[in-house]
């Protein structure tokens, strides 16, 4: 797992979202907007996003982590933190 800085993380997130919503318009998405609502990701889309992010970053994303993936800034922080230090034993 390669540590990501914030800008790497943002681009992985945006790129993954674009693979699910090809015409996603990031110009109308603020860092603290709920991107699921703004970009109209349904639960299947969101699951695909989790799958892509986990595949591309090597970060294990459990269901309990889903709330961290609500806004671009939260999600960025989540990926930066998780790639910086592998999580200890969980649950």
């Amino acid at each position: 797992m390669k540590p990501l800085n914030a800008s790497d993380a943002v681009s992985v997130i945006k790129d993954s979202i674009t693979r699910i919503v090809p015409d996603a318009d990031f110009t109308r998405l603020e860092p603290d907007d709920k991107f699921r609502d703004v970009l109209e990701l349904d639960s299947l889309d969101f699951l695909s996003l989790v799958e892509l992010l986990s595949e591309r970053t090597g970060v294990r994303i459990d269901e309990v982590d889903y709330p961290e993936l609500t806004t671009l800034s939260d999600a960025t922080r989540f990926l930066v933190e998780r790639t910086a230090r592998p999580p200890g034993p969980r649950r």
């Binding site: 639960s43 699951l47 799958e51 459990d62 269901e63």
Partner: peptide, 17 residues
């Protein structure tokens, strides 16, 4: 669902639907 998804990779998880 939660128990079922806990040990699954995202690709194999179920949604409520």
């Amino acid at each position: 669902l939660r128990r079922c998804n806990r040990d699954r990779p995202p690709a194999d998880r179920l949604v409520s639907a």
